[in-house]
Every structure is written in structure tokens, then in C-alpha cells.
């Protein structure tokens, strides 16, 4: 077998913009995939999260019980967990609901018709929170979204066993 590292990406409460940014690496993706195998992602057809993953990129905030279950599972099976983008790092736009109660929000969006959460979608947590509020995060990549260049640097460094230094190239927002 190859000595390729395993790479996964997951998508919690976010807009998928960070995944788009991953795709924006264009042909550099091919070079990266020489060193790493994408074993789980919304971008590939794989139903269950593998038992051991070297690097997982997390997009999105933890907003629902489903998100929470997922991130705990992913954390337990991942060596290096990366919070990718502002939603994962700060809870960003999903957190804008936090000053209000879940009940108020549901009433507002459904115009009073559905004061309770419907049972066929995951229950909302009281607050949408950043990933590191629930599990240990190894690398933080702020940005909305982080640029393809930033993601490229993160992956190249991590695959080479280095901790990336992002302070001068990315920040909250843009």
C-alpha cells in the first residue's frame, strides 16, 4: 500500500463556501492528492467516517444535536482536526441567532405556525457554537472563506508534518 496520508472533510452548519475554496485550489488539488487520499467528504461517495483519519477539515459551526454527535465521532477518529473557516472557528453567521432563544427563532421563521421543532430534522442546540467549544481543535484557519492559497499552505504544511503559521495570511472575515 501507499504511504499516503488520509484526509477527510466534513460539513456542519456552514454555507459550503469553505469547500468551494478547497476546490478553488484547482490543479494544486491533484498534486496534494499525490500525498493524501481523500477518504471521506461531501465531495466523495463514502457513507461512513473511517476509523482512522490523519487530517480532517471541518467546515461549519456546531448548531444541532446531529452536528454535535458528528464532531465528537470525527474527533475520536481523527489525528489532526482543522477548524476550517470562520463558521468552524467563531460560529460566524450561524451564531447570529444566539442572542435569541430557539423558540423565538422557530416562531419567527415559521410565522408562529411551528412553535416546536419538527421531528424529522435534527434538534437545534441552544446556541450555534464554534467547534473548539466541544472538542479539541489542533489547527485554526479563520477566514470567510479562507482562500485556496491558505488552505493549500495548511495542507502542504500538515502533510509535511509542520504546524502552519497563518497569522499574516488570514484572519476573521476577509
Amino acid at each position: 500500500m501507499s504511504t499516503k496520508k488520509s484526509l477527510a472533510t466534513i460539513w456542519l452548519d456552514g454555507c459550503s463556501g469553505c469547500h468551494m475554496s478547497v476546490l478553488d485550489m484547482d490543479e494544486r488539488l491533484l498534486a496534494l492528492l499525490e500525498q493524501a487520499e481523500l477518504v471521506y467528504s461531501p465531495l466523495v461517495d463514502q457513507k461512513t467516517f473511517p476509523d482512522h483519519v490523519d487530517i480532517t477539515l471541518v467546515e461549519g459551526a456546531v448548531s444541532t444535536e446531529e452536528d454535535l454527535k458528528k464532531i465528537k465521532l470525527v474527533r475520536s477518529k481523527t489525528h489532526t482536526l482543522v477548524s476550517l473557516g470562520d463558521c468552524a472557528v467563531t460560529a460566524n453567521v450561524p451564531s447570529m441567532r444566539n442572542p435569541l432563544s430557539v423558540k423565538d427563532i422557530l416562531e419567527r421563521v415559521s410565522d408562529g405556525a411551528a412553535p416546536r421543532q419538527p421531528s424529522n430534522v435534527p434538534l437545534l442546540l441552544g446556541n450555534a457554537r464554534p467547534v473548539h467549544n466541544f472538542v479539541k481543535v489542533d489547527v485554526f484557519v479563520p477566514g470567510c472563506p479562507p482562500s485556496a492559497d491558505v488552505i493549500h499552505l495548511v495542507l502542504t504544511d500538515l502533510l509535511a508534518g509542520r504546524q502552519p503559521d497563518l497569522t499574516s495570511i488570514t484572519r476573521f472575515g476577509k
Partner: peptide, 14 residues
């Protein structure tokens, strides 16, 4: 950014 902050370790108060 200049202080090298990449995440907020304190809980948000919302």
C-alpha cells in the same frame, strides 16, 4: 490579526 489570534478561547457571551 496582529496579535496572532486565530480563535477565541473565552466563551462567547452572545
Amino acid at each position: 490579526q496582529s496579535q496572532g489570534i486565530d480563535h477565541i478561547s473565552l466563551p462567547y457571551l452572545y
